[in-house]
């Protein structure tokens, strides 16, 4: 199971990188829909992928491993997501199988 999860996490990370790269270059609904479908397929495998970009970051968030850029460490926002966070949902249980790797920056509202 662990090995399977590792392999799937690697695939999800690659898809995340592709999405980040492709979706910034143009507003491509076709691509976007396909990425959504891929995510749905992972959800059928009980793997829920979440991209925390733009979310608030604080030291209480253990679902992310952050590097803090910029001058301020107050009012942190996640400005870049290198790896998304991945949950394995088994019934009522949620297991965080990959913490997001993010860059957070301070100075927001």
């Amino acid at each position: 199971m662990q090995e399977q999860h590792n392999a799937l996490c690697n695939i999800i990370n690659q898809i995340h990188s592709l999405e980040a790269k492709l979706m910034t270059s143009e507003d491509n609904q076709t691509l976007s829909r396909r990425f959504q479908r891929i995510k749905k397929s992972f959800e059928e495998l009980k793997l829920f992928v979440h991209n925390p970009i733009g979310e608030d970051y604080s030291e209480t968030r253990l679902d992310c491993e952050a590097s803090i850029s910029g001058e301020s460490s107050e009012h942190l926002k996640i400005i870049e997501v290198i790896k998304p966070l991945i949950y394995f949902k088994n019934g009522e249980d949620n297991e965080l199988i990959q913490r997001a790797v993010v860059i957070a920056e301070g100075g927001g509202d």
Partner: peptide, 28 residues
């Protein structure tokens, strides 16, 4: 939080404590 996504850190206990708990969507 049991899934490992949240830890408040150590905070001084007082007569009244309030905390904003972040939740995983659609889950217990």
């Amino acid at each position: 939080r049991s899934d490992g996504g949240y830890d408040s850190g150590l905070l001084p206990m007082s007569k009244q404590v309030t905390a904003d708990l972040p939740l995983i969507p659609n889950a217990h």
